[in-house]
């Protein structure tokens, strides 16, 4: 696919802002119940049931899923909240 020049420039601008390009990743583990992981995504992130289910299955099948993106401090708060729930989560710079 081709990407219009304008969009590419916008993406570059976003990447240069220190506060934007971070993501929260939830990793699969053999312990947590699928219903629990969905419940956490629904109640903590406020996702509709279908989206929470989709993210849960992504974690289960792919081993990981990006569940949020934004500023670094916000992602650190999300990761800490996931650890409160007992989910295995990390944050990283988007694309790294």
């Amino acid at each position: 696919m081709s990407i219009p020049t304008l969009e590419r420039e916008t993406d570059l601008d976003a990447a240069q802002q220190p506060d934007t390009p971070w993501v929260t990743i939830v990793w699969n583990d053999p312990v947590n119940l699928q219903t629990y992981v969905s419940y956490v995504f629904r109640t903590y992130f406020g996702h509709p049931r279908a989206e929470a289910e989709r993210l849960m299955l992504l974690v289960h099948n792919e081993g990981r899923a990006v569940v949020a993106s934004g500023g670094r401090e916000e992602m650190e708060r999300h990761v800490e909240a996931m650890h409160d729930f007992g989910l295995w989560a990390t944050l990283t710079r988007d694309g790294s």
């Binding site: 583990d29 053999p30 312990v31 947590n32 629990y36 419940y39 289960h60 729930f85 007992g86």
Partner: peptide, 23 residues
Amino acid sequence: WLRTLTDLRLTLAARLHIEDDGD
């Protein structure tokens, strides 16, 4: 309860060497 049940299962799973799906 939900969080403690999770933490207990994570603790026991570590003791039982449940490390990957299907273990």
